[in-house]
């Protein structure tokens, strides 16, 4: 794997001086933490600029930093891959709980459609200008967003509003019950009957 080179990091900083919050390097991979307001322009730049050439959006996901005391609470994470240049890059955009929205990047990569729907479904982050923002894994009408850190592993989310099916016996008219009694009576005479009722 060709590592993402230093000068590309510097060039990115120069191009978006006001939007880069931090550049993290860990285990040889770079992650750009950027402001969410211009995420579309930033990803457009990374996709179209020949030196970066990130033609594949590998993944869109989210992390809820509630328990780590993160402010803002959410980070939307984009994993980019360049097939020609053979390098990878992570891009993270913090999203606060009070303004839980970010621009959709569906116009750049069609694959973002479903990946963003999943983030919306499981984290409740609203993607502006998304063509079809519906729940994807959880059923329609489900309340809450299960991958948020304040959503418990078990105990909530069990559905108790389902209509309970009644047993048919309770609704049977009396004459049917009488037929049953008759058949029991016949059983009395049956020689195979082990015990007589």
């Amino acid at each position: 794997m060709t590592p993402f080179s230093e000068h590309l990091v510097d060039r990115f900083r120069d191009t978006f001086p006001d939007d880069v919050i931090e550049v993290v390097e860990f285990r040889g991979d770079y992650t750009f933490i950027v402001k969410k307001e211009r995420i579309l322009e930033i990803l457009q730049f990374l996709k179209d600029e020949p030196d970066y050439d990130f033609d594949l959006l590998a993944d869109v996901t989210c992390v809820d930093y509630l328990k780590l005391g993160g402010t803002p609470r959410f980070h939307v994470v984009y994993q980019l891959k360049s097939i020609a240049k053979k390098h990878r890059l992570g891009v993270k955009a913090p999203v606060s709980e009070s303004d839980c929205t970010i621009d959709s990047v569906e116009s750049l990569w069609a694959t973002a459609n479903w990946l963003e729907r999943e983030v919306y479904d499981l984290y409740g982050i609203v993607f502006n200008h998304h063509s079809d923002l519906r729940r994807i894994l959880m059923p329609d009408g489900y309340e809450g967003h299960p991958l948020r850190k304040d959503y418990p592993l078990e105990g909530r989310g069990e559905r108790d509003d389902l209509e309970v099916l009644q047993r048919i016996a309770n609704q049977l008219p009396d004459d049917i019950l009488m037929v049953e009694t008759e058949s029991v009576k016949r059983g009395k005479e049956n020689p195979d009957g082990a015990d007589v009722i």
Binding site: V24, F26, D29, T31, A58, D59, V77, Q79, G90
Partner: peptide
């Protein structure tokens, strides 16, 4: 720390973040 690691599963890129 945070890592993204991808392997070539029979079906394509299987990534773990």
């Amino acid at each position: 720390g945070e890592v993204y690691s991808a392997t070539e599963s029979p079906n394509g890129e299987l990534g773990f973040y």
